[in-house]
Simulated assay, not measured.
Amino acid sequence: MRMLLKARVDTEKGNELIESGRMGDVLSSIIQRLQPEAAYFTPERGHRSCLLIFDMDDPSQMVPLTEPFFSQMGAEVTVQPAMNLEDVQRGMAAVKS
């Protein structure tokens, strides 16, 4: 299932990762693990944030996929199902039937 993961990084932990030169490595590791179809990085409400669209086959994957955000970045994380236009159109066709 296509999922949207949003992570808002704790400012102090983010600063530590940047100052130590580890932020790039942490992000690369997460991207390699998730293999997202899209990845966006933006400030949100005064915090470094990222939005990742990825496929999740099994809900148990949520633990290893989100843990680096919690343990290494002190991030607030939300994960929710997401649809693209094609998905919405298929869903609407099913409603009409």
Rank of each mutant, 00 (worst) to 15 (best):
F54G: 03
A93R: 14
K13M: 11
R22C: 04
H47W: 02
S49D: 00
Q61R: 11
M1R: 03
D57Q: 15
S28T: 15
R90E: 09
L52H: 02
R8C: 08
R48W: 06
V9G: 01
G24D: 14
D10F: 00
P81A: 05
P64W: 01
G91Q: 04
H47T: 04
S71L: 09
L4S: 07
I30H: 07
L4F: 08
G24S: 15
V77H: 01
E12Y: 07
T78N: 09
A94P: 00
P36S: 03
N84G: 05
V26Q: 04
I53R: 07
M62I: 15
R48A: 13
G74I: 00
M92Q: 01
R90F: 06
P43F: 11
V95R: 14
G14H: 06
K13Y: 00
L85Y: 10
Q80Y: 07
V79M: 09
F41M: 15
T66E: 04
D87M: 13
Q35A: 12
R33M: 14
A93Q: 12
L17M: 10
L4T: 02
P68I: 01
I53K: 11
E76V: 13
L51D: 00
S97K: 14
E44V: 12
D55P: 01
Q61P: 05
D10T: 00
Q61M: 13
S60T: 09
N15L: 11
K96Q: 11
G14M: 07
R22V: 02
D25F: 06
D58A: 10
G21F: 05
V88S: 05
M56Q: 12
A94N: 07
V79N: 06
P36N: 02
P64L: 04
S71F: 01
A93P: 00
F41V: 10
V95F: 09
Q89A: 11
S60V: 08
